[in-house]
Design a protein around this nucleic acid. Structure first.
Lengths: 130, 130
DNA sequence: AGTTGAATTAGTAATTGTTATTGATTTTGA
DNA sequence: TCAAAATCAATAACAATTACTAATTCAACT
């Protein structure tokens, strides 16, 4: 099992690259980032390991922006902001909006669904683009 | 003189198909739906016209779910619910959560961004799947 | 009705992000 | 030490979408 085993050097590097930035990168970005230090790395390995991180709860998808899936190693629930021009993804402080279990419960009761999580995303122009 | 061309019959049919359902369909779905009545329709035409609708503000993307982009002709701001098992997308009543211009303004002030819109999505299991 | 020119289309090819396969290499555990 | 399991790079395969091209449609104006 993954949890008992230590990460391989490459898996470790991929996680470190993802965790060290708030850019919410794509697989491609992680690959380009690591290529200089790990010349033998392949893009497929990056994709595979990002999937592993999602499975074991070390990362999540922020969605597919401009055709590419974007990842986040910050597992705290927080809203995102996506710049419609440059496709930067910014973290917003959770304080601005955080629906609690009460909202989940109300939705479950009123809409006959079970709610596991939510995602809140704002769109507009970032400071550089506007 | 400027062209006063109305929607072509096919463009009209594609829009009607999209607007007549709350399934938040994919391009493929619209295509399959219309094929019986419009045997000469091509999938590329569906894709192209869905893009047109997005551009002119007659439809929006609900995101890429399970690899396929899903569309919505309901331009009212409202939250969505995505079933993690069957990938149904349900509309939720806007009343359960609707951040106003005041939240937008606060974000603009505090985070140095300009906010144009937001999207709120809940995930879980629908009534059929849970 | 005929002409014109831009918009729209079908059909197909090309592109793109992602996943699966393969065969080699390394690691693990006994 | 040795065999099974895990991991890997490289490449092929895949599916959704977009781009291209030549043909057709349609409104505006004769």
């Amino acid at each position: 099992m993954q949890s008992k085993r230590n990460f391989s050097a490459k898996r470790e590097a991929i996680y470190a690259a993802l965790a060290s930035t708030t850019l919410h990168p794509s697989a491609e970005w992680v690959y380009e980032q690591l290529k200089p230090e790990l010349p033998g790395l392949s893009l497929g390995t990056v994709y595979r390991n990002l999937s592993v991180f999602k499975e074991i709860g070390l990362a999540r998808s922020v969605g597919i922006i401009n055709g590419q899936e974007r990842f986040d190693a910050n597992m705290m629930q927080h809203p995102h902001f996506i710049c419609q021009k440059c496709f930067r993804i910014l973290d917003l402080p959770a304080g601005y909006y955080s629906p609690g279990k009460n909202l989940y419960k109300m939705l479950e009761r009123e809409c006959d669904i079970s709610v596991e999580m939510h995602s809140m995303t704002f769109y507009g122009l970032c400071s550089r683009c506007r």
